[in-house]
């Protein structure tokens, strides 16, 4: 009996100590990790989409709570006027989650461009979604009322040959972006109006 109590106590104390240590390390590194993710994964995609803006979209960002999820929006300004937002959504690819940065012009409600941020697709096949600009370029200029699905599913996007699952994953992420944008548009406009002042 004594031994059993000792086992329980030792393991409990050890777990509690471990939990405490990890919580403090996590708090200590959280901001730094967020910065690193921004710098190495999101920044290249944002720069590619908003290549001609006059500000630094990484600085001009705001967050909106959408259901349980916190979304970060990056604002691009043309001639000092904030008229573009980009944000990241996710779809399921062939090898796991697939992140897609979507840029939208808030005046014409048209997509400026999309760019894959993170993926674990097969190199040379699914990875073309990120490396081959032709596929992503199809989204550019499409307005929010279009159907962002592959042609096979009744939409307007040509899937990459041999990479159907990846193409669908990108389309799902784009549809999600469409959905979020349509739903949150008033909130986005409010935030941008604040930023312009």
């Amino acid at each position: 009996m004594r031994e059993m109590i000792k086992m329980v106590v030792v393991l409990t104390v050890l777990s509690a100590f471990s939990g405490g240590l990890l919580a403090s390390v996590r708090t200590g590194t959280k901001d730094k990790i967020e910065q690193q993710v921004l710098k190495f994964q999101k920044a290249p995609a944002i720069k590619q989409i908003l290549s001609d803006v006059s500000n630094d979209p990484l600085q001009d960002r705001f967050k909106i709570m959408d259901k349980e999820q916190e979304l970060t929006f990056f604002v691009g300004k043309h001639d000092g006027k904030p008229d573009a937002v980009t944000f990241e959504t996710a779809g399921k690819g062939f090898g796991g989650d697939l992140g897609l940065m979507v840029g939208i012009n808030i005046e014409s409600d048209a997509i400026i461009g999309v760019c894959v941020t993170t993926h674990s697709e097969t190199p040379g096949i699914g990875s073309r979604a990120k490396d081959d600009p032709k596929f992503a370029a199809q989204f550019a200029g499409m307005t929010m009322d279009k159907n962002f699905a592959t042609k096979k599913d009744g939409g307007d996007i040509d899937a990459m040959s041999g990479a159907t699952v990846t193409s669908k994953g990108v389309c799902v992420a784009a549809q999600q972006a469409q959905d979020i944008y349509t739903r949150l548009k008033p909130e986005i406009q409010k935030q941008i109006a604040q930023m312009a002042n």
Binding site: V10, L11, L14, S15, S18, L21, L22, V25, R26, T29, K32, I33, Q36, V37, K39, F40
Partner: peptide, 23 residues
């Protein structure tokens, strides 16, 4: 079980630190 807790704790510390400084 105790060793695994200890090792896992330090591995997670390394993981977080690497994520923060050598992304």
């Amino acid at each position: 079980a105790a060793y695994i807790i200890i090792i896992a704790t330090f591995v997670t510390v390394v993981e977080l630190v690497m994520q923060a400084y050598t992304y």
